[in-house]
Design a protein around this nucleic acid. Structure first.
Length: 178
DNA sequence: GATAAGATCATCT
DNA sequence: GATGATCTTATCA
């Protein structure tokens, strides 16, 4: 996929990633994961976004070029995989929350990373031309708008009004709620 | 089935 | 020293 895709508005990217395939080359195999749930984190004003505290060592990568991987560890044991969006120096990203592999559902950022063997080695890597981890161009037509649902993001209650924004997107039939 | 607790650490204050 | 963009397991009903 081209960088220009990720340079578009984050909410657009989050929606348009649904139904696309993420391909992970691992030990000579190709793991094909269809994306079924995403979340958008947009800018320093978004209190749920890690960049809301400014440009720090942790959030630095969010300011990088669109198409860069943002991977971090949470709760001491789970990795979360994001793709940086929009223009450089504007901190925004899309979190991959759930994928489907061989018909099996992996819901939750931690499980997605486990299934795809993603860890902090990918942090800061450019995914536009990456052999180990890349997005496939869509094969069929684009997902119908009616197949996409949205709702508030998960686990960000502390973000006040920002927590209520319907910036989580999932495909119908794949909802993975807690 | 539902809810609660425990794990465990990089990053920020 | 506190705290998460969480998941698994245990303990209830």
């Amino acid at each position: 996929m081209q960088r220009i895709f990720f340079q578009k508005p984050t909410l657009w990217v989050a929606k348009n990633l649904l139904g696309r395939t993420l391909i992970r080359r691992w030990r000579g195999r190709e793991i094909r994961a269809s994306i079924c749930e995403t979340e958008a984190y947009v800018g320093e004003n978004d209190l749920a976004c890690h960049a809301s505290k400014g440009r720090t060592k942790r959030s630095e990568v969010l300011f990088a070029k669109a198409g860069t991987a943002y991977v971090y560890l949470i709760y001491g044991m789970h990795y979360c995989f994001n793709v940086v969006t929009e223009k450089s120096d504007f901190p925004a990203a899309v979190l991959i929350r759930a994928v489907s592999i061989d018909g099996k559902n992996f819901s939750g950022p931690g499980r997605v990373c486990k299934a795809l063997h993603i860890d902090k080695r990918f942090h800061g890597q450019n995914l536009i031309k990456n052999k180990e981890l890349r997005f496939e161009r869509r094969l069929g037509g684009r997902l119908k708008f009616s197949q996409i649902k949205s709702g508030p993001r998960i686990g960000v209650e502390y973000a006040g009004a920002w927590a209520k924004k319907p910036w989580r997107f999932w495909t119908i039939g794949e909802r993975s709620v807690k």
